[in-house]
């Protein structure tokens, strides 16, 4: 498979209260066209920073090193850079500041080519705009449609993400929807401009188990139908393994291991990957109660 994008020696440093906090250290990997790639790791591993870097959404104060090269043949014509969703405020990450060493080609990649789904749909949807308009706006901006065409497209998208009663949902506000429905709307907005790459950053972590499974199935279906490449960011190795073709394991900003899902799960090369697998509490794991030999 050809690479959709090649990340080489990517380093990101956040500046916080005058000190520099490294978030990614010399990460190199290729994202293959059409693959489902999971990036997993614990908090502070740099997985969200990697996603933001790929999308060109890093805060302006971040110091960026290395390159992210998009394979030219894979790219649609570069257009405007409006992000699909509002970047939610992330505590601890510096806001504002001087723009430094931001490679130029980041700016060539815009909302048109990347769809981004965040963890909390409430903070990526505008609370006072009907959801139909929010989706139509994306289609209008990036596909240069009229409002009428864009609204027709929004309705089709709401059907595709299986929102009940798409006609009335077009006029609904985010607060009228459940968490799972809001995430469906955020996904509809993310794919409204027909992106090549969909990035889902902990997109199911705030949802309960049943809704999480529904959203994962939805993402899987949409990615297959549209031939999108998927970067799926998660802390949950079991969830990642169920969805991804390949898994990249990050720890403390470094790429620890990258391989086919089967290899990562059955024959991890790195002790840390093995520890993550062993820490998973599945429905077939030996209960901790037994390990302690104690029972009430």
């Amino acid at each position: 498979m050809t690479a959709l994008l090649s990340i080489r020696d990517l380093g990101v440093v956040y500046r916080r209260d005058g000190s520099e906090v490294p978030a990614l250290k010399s990460v190199s990997l290729d994202v293959l066209a059409g693959e489902r790639l999971a990036i997993i790791g614990e908090s502070g591993s740099g997985k969200s920073t990697l996603a933001l870097a790929v999308a060109g959404l890093l805060p302006t104060g971040a110091l960026v090193d290395g390159t992210i090269e998009w394979s030219a043949g894979q790219l649609q014509k570069p257009r405007s850079v409006t992000p699909l969703s509002v970047l939610p405020y992330t505590a601890g990450r510096p806001e504002g500041g001087v723009k430094d060493r931001q490679p130029l080609h980041f700016r060539l990649i815009g909302g048109r080519d990347i769809g981004f789904v965040f963890q909390d749909p409430s903070s990526s949807l505008d609370p006072v705009m009907p959801i139909g308009k929010q989706i139509a706006e994306v289609a209008r901006t990036h596909l240069h449609l009229t409002w009428r065409e864009a609204f027709t497209r929004a309705k089709i998208l709401l059907e595709r993400v299986r929102l009940p009663d798409p006609d009335s949902a077009l006029h609904a506000y985010p607060h009228q929807l459940s968490g799972g429905q809001k995430q469906r709307v955020a996904i509809a907005a993310a794919i409204a401009a027909e992106p090549m790459l969909l990035i889902a950053d902990e997109a199911t972590s705030a949802l309960d188990t049943i809704v999480q499974a529904e959203i994962v199935a939805l993402i899987r279906r949409l990615v297959a139908e549209d031939g999108m490449t998927l970067i799926f960011i998660s802390h949950d190795i079991a969830l990642a393994a169920a969805l991804a073709d390949r898994i990249a394991v990050l720890r403390h900003g470094e790429l620890i291991e990258l391989g086919e899902t089967r290899q990562i799960v059955n024959a991890p090369r790195h002790a840390y990957t093995r520890a993550l697998l062993d820490a998973h509490l599945g429905l077939d794991a030996e209960p901790l109660l037994d390990r302690q030999g104690a029972s009430a």
């Binding site: 499974a213 190795i237 079991a238 169920a242 059955n266 024959a267 599945g282 429905l283």
Partner: peptide
């Protein structure tokens, strides 16, 4: 209960729980 749920919601919860299938060498 988790091994053999009887209620519809119990079955749905078990079915939706991500399974990590490992072939240990």
């Amino acid at each position: 209960v988790i091994a053999n749920p009887q209620s519809a919601i119990g079955k749905a919860l078990v079915a939706a729980t991500p399974k990590l299938i490992r072939n240990r060498p």
